[in-house]
């Protein structure tokens, strides 16, 4: 079970969180023309990387905040976590 550092609450076990997918995906702005390809990429296409990956988790049984977690998908090592509005350098 992963041990995730919620930037709001501190170290908590994985069972307090729910996974939310790739954090690098940006939703196209509302009311903007979007090509089929662009929309498909947003809705469906994911890289499914092996290695370091920035992903979204929601601390559903805690502060309910969505956070970003930098995690290695192969080793499960967690490097850093960020608040939703934090820029990831």
């Amino acid at each position: 079970m992963l041990y995730i550092n919620c930037p709001h609450c501190g170290m908590r076990s994985q069972n307090e969180f729910s996974y939310g997918g790739d954090a690098s995906v940006k939703r196209p702005e509302l009311n903007k023309e979007v090509s089929d390809q662009e929309w498909d990429n947003f809705v469906y296409n994911r890289k499914s990387l092996r290695g370091k990956h920035l992903e979204l988790w929601q601390h559903i049984s805690g502060c309910r905040q969505w956070i970003k977690v930098e995690r290695d998908t192969a080793t499960h090592e967690i490097f850093r976590t960020f608040k939703a509005d934090e820029e990831v350098a």
Partner: peptide, 17 residues
């Protein structure tokens, strides 16, 4: 009920802060 709340929180926190 739970999914809809998470859904709203997702957009409010991440997409339209």
């Amino acid at each position: 009920a739970a999914n809809v709340l998470s859904h709203l929180e997702y957009y409010l926190q991440l997409v339209w802060p």
